[in-house]
Design a protein around this nucleic acid. Sequence first.
DNA 1: TACAAATTGTGACATTTATCATGTTATTAA
DNA 2: TTAATAACATGATAAATGTCACAATTTGTA
Lengths: 232, 232
Amino acid sequence: MKKGQNICDVESCFLCKNSLEEWKPAISAHKTTYKVKKGEVIFKEGDPVTGIYFVNSGCIKVYKKWDKDKELIVRFAREGSLFGHRGLGKGGFYPISAAALQPTVVCYVDIAFFEATLKVNSGFTYQLLMFLTEELKQSERKMRNLAHMPVKGRVAEALISLQNQFGITPDGFINIDLSRQDLASYAGATYETVFRMMNELVNEKLIDLSGKSIRLLNRDELLKLAQDIVFL
Amino acid sequence: MKKGQNICDVESCFLCKNSLEEWKPAISAHKTTYKVKKGEVIFKEGDPVTGIYFVNSGCIKVYKKWDKDKELIVRFAREGSLFGHRGLGKGGFYPISAAALQPTVVCYVDIAFFEATLKVNSGFTYQLLMFLTEELKQSERKMRNLAHMPVKGRVAEALISLQNQFGITPDGFINIDLSRQDLASYAGATYETVFRMMNELVNEKLIDLSGKSIRLLNRDELLKLAQDIVFL
DNA sequence: TACAAATTGTGACATTTATCATGTTATTAA
DNA sequence: TTAATAACATGATAAATGTCACAATTTGTA
């Protein structure tokens, strides 16, 4: 989607910039880069933690399962994003699953080396700390929304959040190819309910659909639905 | 409730042990200790971040508001726990509120000093990172539960979680004095619904009530309701 | 290409959960 | 102590959301 060059690798990842300069050679020696197909699961909840991943190109979803055919998408990781870091700390098992939404190239650093890096490179640790703080804020915001905000508002927020994360194509559609089921899992509701809410949003001229592509027509009204002005 | 002595202060806080030894004098010079009354709000969502807090004695709830008379309790902080650290990072505003559930003594370290400490003391930063990772895991677990688990299961899980956090009195009741409204806010449902679920649990002999005290009679069955064996 | 499988669209219906109303019982403050 | 206020209890009802069933369409693949 971008200009065909790797704008992100572990070494150039936004998180690591400035912090891993002197670490580059060591990282390169410890990383493994490989491709995953669309739909392929990289690791599952309960799998023993083996390493931390970076998205080189493509996109993956981080999710938690419920009941075999229900899930909640916790976040997406795009080019330049870290994932699998929830495997840090106690337990030794990933608490979430990760699967590719597109053909994706990931790069992998084994956990022992990653933790060793953290212990030594305090600038990096500090940046990771800030990153986790932001994730925690997002997560708790979403928690409250799941508890109290109606599905329509959650769909509105999910759409805005997707646009913020993935941007838009030249003709104004959100620049990600997501199944309706995944959209529902991201909003934390069933496919059918989300489908109805999308219809309502279309009737209210807040969004516009073309195939599975979605275009936001009235961001302000959508934000009002999400009842929160200060956000992302 | 404990034996009348301060078993935790910033200097002896579980988080800081081993990491802040050499930092003690500086911390002492920068901390302020004060009392808050039951029900008193320490800071609110949207307040500018001024510092990080530790619970010296007592208990506080960390929550997010919705709609003036609804809220979701995100976590509790007891003796020895840190709170207000969601104020770290971008924004400069607390994303959550904190209020005392009991007469509580908190101790406060201003944010600039705290951040300076983080930048210098990498052992402490590392431990805080691990702490945040655990919080994130908890948070995402709860997120999924709010999205998919029925209220009854959430109540069951909330009760088990409370018992794990606060322990039991000699006669077996969960050692915290929480209003039913707060319990509902913790489970992420309305007072009335939680009330009904509690009645069901009583009828099923899974719990036992005495005033506002709650005793778990069948932890295993409650865990089954929460449909997750691997947990806290 | 052609078939199977997955995804999407849509209505009818069931269930869960929230809302409202109202009475009762504690707690707090004067 | 008493009045006032907040917390608790509980049923009736409404609204939101999920479940089920099934057709249409798209996608992946043999």
